[in-house]
Design a binder for these strands. Structure first.
Lengths: 223, 223
DNA sequence: TTGGAAATACGCAATAATGCGTATTCTTCA
DNA sequence: TGAAGAATACGCATTATTGCGTATTTCCAA
């Protein structure tokens, strides 16, 4: 799915929360390059944003993470509580894990570095409003690592056991609890063929019944 | 940081693993548009890729997730074990949570939908080789959601179905693939009793066979 | 183009599982 | 203490699954 191509309500109403006036201007200048976007609200901190957000029909907020008073993370949390339809793109100069994690938990739809060029920012806005999420490449890597580390899977060696594409299909149906008969009619093959496929699966997986086959396949991420 | 602007060793050696020859050609055509990239290896499945990967100095692999024989996830795992410096970009037509999660765990540096346009693919390759990660917008959203709910659903929607302690024991044995006979001797009860317990379990869970019972019990965290 | 793997298909035979009825014993709680 | 539920147990009948052998067709790669 190419989110950026979806139809969106126009114009897109953008709010910007940014305490640094230089960074604010840079951000405004970028957004003003996008003909479909209109800046309807500027705020220098979280409180100011929350006070005025209801006065406008805001679609998306570009939110600085570090602001005096209420910071971007708390503000995002409150925004998502009261206006869950409003998307929040987090902007920051730092890509530290803590901030990223908390911003995600607060409900941000994306996390961008401030130096993203205008076209990348525009694409991120469009993707976000189309139901996706946006991340700078460096952020994305950290998010993946966040996801990997808590689990800490002991890189077990997964095997494929030489199963063919068709055999994996059969396994999928077995997993769903279908009888041979049902599998046969679902795959438009004969009962006998189903049996033979399953025999071959059992031999390759070295098991003797459905349950063991499903479990072994599952353990090895085959299904 | 704008990863794509970093200096990279040229040319970039790309390997492609894709079983569908049509999709393979589409992918090749895209990569051939990038003057800094060179396709050095094409494979139709994981085994073929692993066999030949050492013969080339591959920088990055574009890996189909679903292939006959060894699939993309297992292949990625093996690649990262043996050649950790090689980056892997997962390509798929489906953005289901399970595959994304497993691909990330296997060590993929990115996860893209196959229909990404050439320029997005190019940017993803550059970002990845510069130390970042790449995700389609829809994928990124799912990753964020994976991170937000640590795979635990509160027990409120989960049912117990009135199963007794003993019946849960039986289910545990069913899950392990044991036959009625084996369950009987493990629990020191008769074959007939096992049958009766299982009958009762099926009635309570409203299922008609082992596989469905195990699945339903698992879905409801009963086992 | 050709050999091998994969997918298709069926028969025979044995074992496993399922559905229903019935019955006894044991525990627990009102 | 008495009733209800739980656990135990078996018989009969039917369907499903599994194991092994064999065979044809299809597809792909050497």
């Amino acid at each position: 799915m190419k989110f950026a191509e979806s139809k969106l309500r126009m114009p897109i109403n953008i709010a910007i929360a940014e305490d640094n006036s230089f960074a604010l201007k840079a951000c405004i200048d970028k957004v003003n390059l996008f003909p479909e976007c209109r800046i309807v609200l500027k705020a220098f901190n979280g409180e100011e944003l929350l006070e005025n957000i209801a006065k406008h029909s805001v679609d998306l907020i570009l939110m600085d993470i570090q602001m005096p008073g209420m910071g971007g993370i708390i503000c995002t949390q409150k925004i998502k509580q009261n206006y869950p339809q409003i998307k929040v793109l987090m902007l920051t100069t730092f890509d530290d894990d803590e901030n990223i994690f908390h911003a995600i938990m607060a409900g941000a739809s994306g996390y961008l570095l401030k130096e993203e060029p205008a076209d990348a920012l525009r694409e991120s806005i469009m993707d976000t409003l189309s139901g996706g999420a946006a991340m700078s490449a460096g952020i994305a890597l950290k998010v993946l690592n966040l996801l990997r580390n808590p689990a800490l899977k002991p890189a077990e060696i997964l095997e494929n056991f030489g199963l063919t594409k068709r055999e994996l299909e059969l396994l999928e149906h077995l997993k769903n609890g279908l009888s041979y008969e049902n599998i046969a009619s679902n795959l438009f093959i004969s009962y006998g063929t189903v049996r033979k496929h399953i025999e071959n699966i059992y031999r390759k997986l070295q098991v003797n019944n459905k349950v063991e086959a499903i479990r072994k396949a599952g353990d090895n991420r085959l299904i």
